[in-house]
Each structure stands twice: as C-alpha cells, then as structure tokens.
Design a protein around this nucleic acid. Structure first.
Lengths: 219, 219, 219, 219
DNA sequence: AATGAATGAGCCTTCATTCAT
DNA sequence: GATGAATGAAGGCTCATTCAT
C-alpha cells in the first residue's frame, strides 16, 4: 500500500520537529511542509496530532534499536567484557553515529517528562534493556547482594552513560575545546565508564590508573 | 519599590509554568492569571516573553542555590568526607525537600536544551560547582592523573546524581513500589553514589559490601 | 440495478442527517458512514452534496405522501366530514406515526427557509394539497366569498395543523406534563382544529362546547 | 465603557448572520467582518462562538419585544377588542415593520429546533406572552371550559399568526402576485385571524361575512 | 461500479503583543 | 505604575471534493 509509505514519511519528518520543539510547540504545518504532504494528511493517517506523536515516538525507538542493537554474547564470555560491551552500545546509542540523532532526543524528552507514549516505551524498550544490564551485573556481584542494590548500581551505570547526552551542551561549555574528543568520542567514553564501574565493583584496578592508556592525546 | 515586588511575584508565578510547559508552550496569560496581574504587565515589566523567561531562570537558580547551599569544610576535613557531603548536597538539590521543585525542573530544561539563558547559568552556577567537585577529587587522585580524566570522573559522579531526577519517572516505573524509598530517599541515594565513586577511586571497599547497612528495610 | 439501490440507501441515510443538521452543517462523511459507503460515492452517484440534498428532499416528500395519503371521498360525502378528514390527514402527517419522522423535519426546513429544492416541492406537493383544501372549503363557503378570503381561511387551517410540529418543543415546555397527551395525540388535535374551523365558518357550534367530549381524560 | 458598545455592535452583526445561516453554518469571520472587528474579539468578549450565539438570541428578543410591545388595556376594555389588539401585535411582530427582521428569523430557528438558548427564551418571553393570551381568552370562554381546551384555542391563534412568517415564502409562491398585499399586510391579516377566531368562539359572525370590508382592493 | 488516498480551503480558537487611558 | 480593549498571525482540525486504481 502507498498509505504505509506516506505514514512513514510523515513520521520521519515529524521526528526531528518533535525532538527539537516538543509536542506542543511543534506544528503540524511544519511537519507537513517537511514531509511534502498536505496538512489534512495528519488527520487522515493518524487522526490527530497527539496520535501522530505517539506513533512517531514508537517509530523512533524501533529505528534506534535497529541502528544500534544490543550486543549478543557467546556462552563463556567474561562478565567484565559483557559489561564493557553493553556500556559501549548504550553510549553509542546516546552520542554515537549518527551524532545526536533526533530519535534519542525525542526519547529523552519522554524520559524527562513522560507523556502517554512513555508507558509502552518503558515496557518494550527500557525495562528489557535494564534487565539485560542486571543479568550482567549478576555475574559480577556476590550472590547475597540485595535486589535494590543491584538496581542502584545499574542506574549508576545508566546515569553515567546518559549524562553526556542529557547534559552534553553544558559539558561542551565547561571543558576546553581540545578535550572535547576525550569526552565525546564514544569508545573512550565507554571505556572510562566501564573502567570506573568495574573498579567500583572490585573487578578492576582503581579507575585513575587507566588514565594513560585512555588518554586520547596519545592516539 | 512596588515594581520590584511585582516583578518577583511574576517570576514566582512564571517559574512553575515555564518548568512544566517549557518556554513556547507556556502562555503569558496563564502566568499572569497565576500572578494575579494584567497580561500587559509582562510587556511592561520585562519587555517581552523571552526576557521574562531569562529572568525567571536566573531567579530559579538563585533561589535553589540559597535553599540548598554547597557545604563548607573546616581545614583538615578528610577528602572522602568532603566528597560524600558534596554528593549529598547535589542529590538533595535534585530530588530533596521540597520534592522536585520547579526550580530544578526549569534548570534541567536548560541543561537538556539550552537557550540564551544557559550561558550565564553555566558560568555563575555549574562551572563553580563543578570546580569545587574537581578540587575535592584533586585530594583523592594521584598527582599524575590528567585533567581530562579528572573531569571524566567528575561527570560520572554528577551523572549519577542527576539521573534520578532526569529519569525519575522511568525509574519509578521500573522498580517495584516497595523499593521506591531506597531509590528516592536522598540520603540513601547519596550514600550509594558516594560509596560507588569512592570504591572506584580505590578509596573504599567495593560498592556492594555496603549493601547491608544502606538497606532501607533495616532502618 | 445495483446503482439505484445504493442511491436509495444513501438518500435514506442522508435524510435524517440533513433533517437534523441542515444542508450546510450536515457532512457527507457522516452520511456515508451511516450508509456504509465510501465518501467518494456521493460525488460518484449524485455529482455533489447539493444534488444529493435535492434528491433527498424529493425522496422525503414522496415517502411521506405515500405513508399518509390524503383521503379520497365517495360522491355525496358531507363537506364538514371532508374537512375533518383532511385536517386529520394533515395533522397525522405532521406529528403522527411515526412520531416526528425526519421527512417532515426536512420538508419544514425547506418551508421555513427555501432552497433550490423548494420550488418543485411547492408545485408537486404543497399546491395540489392546498388546492384540495380550497375545493373542500368551496362547499362550505358562500359563492360570493372572494378568492383571497378562501385562501386566508385555508392558511389559517394549515397554520394550526403545522403549529404543533413547528413549535412542538416550545409547546411541550409550556404545557404541563399531564396535558401533553391532549396536545400531541393526533386525533384529539385534529378534532380540535376541525371543530374550531367549522365553528368559525358557521358550520358548527362554538368551539368550546366540544370541550367535554374531546377531553382525553374522559377516554 | 467601550466594551459594551463593542459587544452590542458584534451582536447586531451576528444576528442577521446567525438568522440566515444557523449556528453552525454561520462563521465568526463573516460576523467580525460585518462588525468591523478582529476575529479575536469574539473570544475576548464572549468566550466562544456558542456564547456569542446565546447572547445574540437574548439580544434579539429584547430588541423585538421593545420594537413591538404587547398592548396595555384600560380597565373595561371589551375582551373582543383585547384579542384583536393582541393578535395585531403578534402578527406585527412576525411580519410587520421592519419587514421580516432578523430577530424574528433567529427566534423562529430556536422554536423549530431549540438549542441551549431556548429555555430562557420560553420562560422570559413565550410563556408570559401566552399567559396574556390565555387571560384574554378567559373573558371570552365559559367558566367551565377546561384548561387544556383554553390552551388548544390559544395555540390555534398563535399558529395562525406564526404561519405567515414560518411558511411565508411558500405562501408567496402559492398565491398570485396581486393577492400578496391581502396576505402580507399585517393589519388585514390580523383582522382576518381575529375575525376567524372570534367567530369560532361564538363571539362574532361567521368569518366569511367579513370578507368584503377586509378586502384590500376596497381600501 | 466503487474506493482508498490525498488535497486546498476554510473553520474556530489562541497567541504574544500593542495602545489609549 | 498599571490596565482593559483590541489585534494580526498562527494554531489544530474538518470540510467537500478529486484522482488513480
């Protein structure tokens, strides 16, 4: 059907607009202009602006999950390596290629200020992802570690990964130009977060001892 | 002067509205209704909506810095204790009493998506605060730790502190009801982040060994 | 032909909608939804909305004339009886079974505010009916009664018959609940109008003397 | 205040538009164009289109009641004369000077198809007027005439008076040009209705005997 | 014979702003 | 110092209609 193509085209046009302006400030007129369709198309294909928004949010996380899939591990992979790979995927989703895509910005809007679209997002996207992180941590933590502690550690890791996206602009203002690469290059950043987290778990040397080899000025 | 009182009253009314709706979606009519003044007052006192917004953002961080000041330390205080106190203050600013104030929400909006009001915010608020964190870390890190590494560690700590505010609603959806207290009680949360960070720096035992004493079910 | 069935189905769906909303406020979408056909069907079968309206009006009066035909009289029927029967038929068309059908409402719209569909309505429907009323009155009035007077009397009779339909809702608000039956039961109403009209023509006793026998509370 | 003048100006512009097009088909744009004000004025002064409509209906009947007040009678006036005067006033309101004003058309819309504005109309306008008619009939009818019968007679009189306005256009199509004056000149029409009604009540000669003197061709 | 997709025009409403007072 | 009245621009949405299939 042609209708599905049109719906997708509209979602792809709506995504960046909603991401930048938010739901209320985005206008269907601009979205339609970007998509090259008539304003009445929104009503025809989605009913109203709100349902377009929800569909666009869904489309966003489907696209992003496809662009940067979570890693799969062969049996026997060391948990340290798993955690490192997981953090790498998460950081890459946040600030990796393509740099700062609208999908992430839109999802972060939902995280910061959830709307009706958020519930589904949590169930089909955030909760499974967090579950995978917890299962990796299970292999690294003593059996007696209580559940809430495991989650706290998980949120600490996720918080670090998100921070460079959430506060990216402020970080860029605070650090000098020549250090930007160290802070926004996904691999270096992921290594730092993995080092710090593993060190905190007693599964590696203190974080600062990795400094030299991670220093981007040496590469 | 009466004029200043009116300006303050308008800012106090505008704050929660801007915080909840964002700049564009907030309406001067609602703000004026909340403030009990005429719509024309905005233009009379502030020129236009945008200048009102900037003034409100300034007012917000002044208020918040006053409500939860950063701690001062007597000479000779152990750096571990300083870091713990600093983290506690930061977490409290984020999610402490009063719970989730509009000031924080408004500032986070600026962080996530800076406007013209952000630059000043960074210089007079975020940079000094981050500088104090770095100076505490200086006492905990070997002298040879490079600058970018110190900042990375700083951002890791800040990221953890912000995460419960940024993603608070999603966290609340993911964790079961009976664990909420463990995740949203500022003191417990601050202790967790401090433990994890100090452990990562080699200045404390691995984070999970603190589990028992921090478990809120034991209090 | 299948096409004719579809046209009829559309008219039957359009009738109530036009009757309730009027031409401009009725939407082809609602009509098509009620008829279970595609929106494009209107233009396919009728050309445009206006032609559908005209066809629906025609269809309405054909249906209504068929539902409640004017009475036929054997030679020698007394003119008083003819008038009574005529009034009964007219009142029944207005408010009789089925109560307040859409056909009547639609025709009244045309009467109150004629559109292009009205001319034909007058010629093929109202004028012949009025002519039959005049021919009955001819038998009751002196030969020298001028034409305009005959028509005035005719309109007085028609006016009474229409009033309970035209102003039915207001009448219902003005009279107490327990009198509704007296005012909206077609037979009683027709008797009243016939009594009054015949009395006015000197062909019966003053109207109020019929009161007792027409009182529905005695039946 | 200037605001009240503006409200009145808008109502006066809205009246004819609502009267001709009905509530839904009338557009605020046209009303504002006619009133020479900005479209946003409707929202400012009335809230929305619906409240403008209700205000306009109220304004309409206030204006019309003022233009053609019901007659007052000195004590001792003959009831026949009262009825005649009452009918004259009613007919004049319907089709009198100015000919077919928008006020009447708008009120008739409410009668034919009541909206929220109708209830108040009935209480403050129709019911008192009908009450006065009933009190006149009381003087003409035997004491034993039951209530519902009095009302039926009242509605018969009102129905005749309204008919030339309700079905005016159809009447004009049915009667020849040269009789129009006889049917639409308020005085002649009122006389006819009064004659017929009084005759029906036994308070005058049969209606057709008045023919000659009421014939407009003799005036 | 009939329809799903698409559209331009127009709807009511709301916005930040201005101006005379 | 402050406000009620008014406005141009733009918002989301709905309309009858058309067109390719």
């Amino acid at each position: 059907m042609v209708a599905d193509e049109t719906r997708t085209r509209i979602c792809e046009a709506a995504g960046p607009v909603f991401a930048e302006k938010g739901f209320r400030s985005a206008t269907v007129r601009e979205i339609c202009r970007q998509a090259g369709v008539n304003v009445a198309s929104i009503n025809y294909h989605f009913g109203d602006k709100e349902r377009l928004y929800i569909e666009t949010v869904k489309y966003a996380h489907e696209q992003r999950a496809q662009q940067v899939p979570l890693p799969e591990f062969p049996v026997g992979t060391a948990p340290e390596q798993k955690l490192r790979a997981f953090i790498h995927a998460l950081v890459t989703r946040m600030i990796g290629v393509p740099r700062s895509p609208w999908e992430v910005q839109l999802l972060l809007r939902e995280v910061l200020q959830p709307t009706g679209a958020c519930k589904e997002l949590v169930e089909s996207y955030f909760r499974p992802m967090f579950g995978r992180l917890l299962s990796i941590l299970d292999e690294l933590l003593p059996a007696e570690t209580p559940d809430f502690k495991r989650k706290q550690i998980g949120f600490s890791i996720v918080g670090q990964c998100l921070h460079y996206r959430v506060a990216g602009e402020v970080v860029a203002m605070i650090v000098p130009e020549d250090e930007h690469k160290a802070h926004f290059e996904p691999s270096h950043l992921a290594d730092h977060i993995a080092d710090l987290s593993l060190a905190a778990l007693g599964a590696g040397p203190p974080v600062q001892s990795f400094s030299e080899e991670a220093n981007p000025s040496h590469t």
